[in-house]
Design a protein around this nucleic acid. Structure first.
Lengths: 123, 123
DNA sequence: TGTTTATTTGTGTCATCATACAAATATTAT
DNA sequence: ATAATATTTGTATGATGACACAAATAAACA
């Protein structure tokens, strides 16, 4: 009955889930966390808008935060496979991995629809 | 040049963005935050799996957290339109709003694809 | 060599959040 | 009315995260 003896449990052995559950198509929570921050989502939207690889300092011009903050946000998005980073001299150009990103969300949408009881098998 | 005079700025007037940017189809960061927590995502996955409205105490049996925690998670998902809550006597039954949820992610996927430069207009 | 510029990384601070536990509320049954 | 059960809400705590600023790294150029 999980008698809740743990007054304040340690955080270490908590969330290593990774693959979330038995349903295929549900993204990793870390992936969703990467796009759920307001600044990161706006950075992503900016890169989608300009449609071209852009360097860190140029991206930063569009946001009221320090360049170091933008750099960290870009690293998070890159680590989740959302952005691609290419170094050219001093500059690092970041761009959107369109196919990857859209396929994750489309897969999620499909997974949800497949679970919908009112949906017939071949519909 | 945004000389960064602000030593430690207040958080209050920070993130009221809501509509994120000029691109239609990009979800609200609060919506994405709702599904980016590991426990909430597993609760959502559980409701997708069982395919039936389920009450709070039954949902809680599947997770190693207190029922109050699950109740709060469910409220967050409900407030974002992801879950529907229906009270029947003492119990509150939560279920997934399939169409709404899948349409958001499908819309996001479409928005991303539309921004992809390699995609021709009619392709 | 040293200097400038682009980016990343170290570090401290404040805010937010996930959680447990207790208490309050609501509903049904005795 | 009292009791039992389901859910929500109050509150404190520890973890995480976003941020600014400084320092470190890297690359081009004098």
């Amino acid at each position: 009955m999980m008698t809740q003896i743990n007054k304040h449990l340690k955080k270490e052995q908590k969330n290593e889930d990774g693959g979330c559950c038995g349903i295929p198509g549900i993204p990793d929570p870390r992936f969703l966390k990467a796009v759920s921050d307001s600044t990161r989502l706006r950075i992503l939207a900016h890169l989608l808008e300009v449609k071209e690889p852009q360097m860190v300092s140029d991206i930063t011009k569009n946001f009221p935060v320090d360049v170091s903050v933008v750099s960290r946000h870009l690293a998070i998005l890159r680590n989740e496979g959302i952005l691609l980073a290419e170094k050219q001299g001093k500059e690092v150009y970041y761009s959107v991995r369109y196919e990857f990103l859209s396929s994750i969300f489309r897969g999620f949408a499909n997974a949800i629809e497949l679970c919908c009881p009112s949906k017939k098998k071949n519909e």
